[in-house]
């Protein structure tokens, strides 16, 4: 498999915020005592007057951001995904989304690859509970560059945006020049035999699986679905029309996640044999990130197996 540079997605988040601090006078940042972990400490050091420590009080942080947005500011809120999406879900629902407030939510430490902190800190539900909210835009970038671009794009959207990123260094699979448009999926590799749709760190796993499939003479198409909502219906439908079968891959619960979002489109528009890779209705545990991804069955190996199964069902 290809050797790839490894970079932090949260560094992409932090670098984009630093850029916005220079270019957009209205951008402010809030954190809940995790600035050193989410790396918003870099923004805090450079723009202390535009940074607000909110303490360990996420519900207040979300609605304070809502209030700040009502004065014309563009608040970016930062903490771990479990806390931002879970602890303050109803604040996000009733104040931010119903009110269509211009608040950007940065959910760090998404996925089981959070590692040794264990199940309490491994956010595996945010895609489900954020995408169900009207008015929400939901972004799950795949690497450092895409995270940076997602954050810069979020600042241009007038309304709520949730951006999910992780803790660990992940393979760099895009570059500074790769086009990024909210709502427009990226075909990372064209193919004709099976469509693999993935988001976040699973895009790299999908590319690895496609490489292995190629050795078996199977030409897989890999779609990077960095925007879960609004979902790129055309890209999904056109791809499965071409390939005739589908594998979805995500570092998230299977119930309600990216795969479910994809199937809400495909099942209604152009049903094809489908296999899904993701977390199977269970919590995580402590361990090294790679060990956990292997134990819980979310690596290129499972994508490879599921692709073979999907192909078999197609015949």
């Amino acid at each position: 498999m290809a050797e790839r540079e490894m970079l932090l997605t949260r560094q992409g988040w932090a670098d984009a915020l630093l850029e916005l601090g220079e270019t957009n006078p209205n951008v402010v940042v809030l954190d809940a005592d995790l600035a050193k972990s989410t790396l918003t400490c870099l923004f805090k050091d450079k723009f202390p007057n535009k940074f607000f420590d909110m303490g360990i009080a996420e519900q207040n942080m979300i609605n304070t951001a809502g209030g700040l947005s009502l004065t014309g500011l563009i608040p970016f809120v930062s903490t771990y995904g479990v806390f931002v999406s879970g602890r303050a879900w109803e604040q996000i629902r009733t104040s931010i989304c119903y009110g269509e407030l211009n608040v950007k939510l940065g959910g760090a430490h998404g996925g089981i690859s959070v590692g040794p902190d264990g199940a309490t800190h491994q956010a595996l539900e945010e895609i489900a509970i954020m995408r169900v909210l009207p008015k929400m835009t939901l972004l799950v970038p795949s690497d450092y560059y895409e995270t940076k671009k997602a954050v810069l794009a979020a600042a241009k959207i007038n309304g709520p945006v949730y951006i999910r990123f992780g803790r660990e260094k992940v393979p760099v699979i895009t570059n500074a020049d790769t086009p990024f448009e909210v709502g427009k999926a990226i075909t990372m590799k064209e193919g004709k035999d099976v469509t693999i749709v993935a988001c976040g760190v699973m895009v790299a796993e999908a590319l690895d699986a496609a490489e292995e499939l190629a050795k078996e003479g199977i030409n897989a198409e890999v779609i990077n679905l960095h925007t879960i909502k609004p979902i790129d219906r055309d890209a999904l439908i056109n791809s499965v029309k071409k390939t005739g079968c589908l594998v979805t891959a995500e570092e998230h619960q299977l119930a309600g996640g990216m795969g479910s979002a994809v199937l809400e489109v495909i099942a209604q528009e152009y049903p094809v044999p489908t296999e899904m890779v993701g977390i199977k209705d269970t919590f995580g545990e402590s361990g090294e990130p790679r060990q956990l991804m292997e134990k819980y069955g979310i690596t290129s190996k499972e994508i490879l197996e599921k692709s073979r199964q999907a192909l078999k069902r197609k015949l």
């Binding site: 951001a65 209030g67 500011l73 604040q91």
Partner: peptide
Amino acid sequence: LEMSGGSLGQNLSIAHGIALGLKAQGK
């Protein structure tokens, strides 16, 4: 109206955010 509401406990935070934003902008 400045804000939606109906779920108790939320809008003191909204008021806090507005007050913080106005003050931060010297208004």
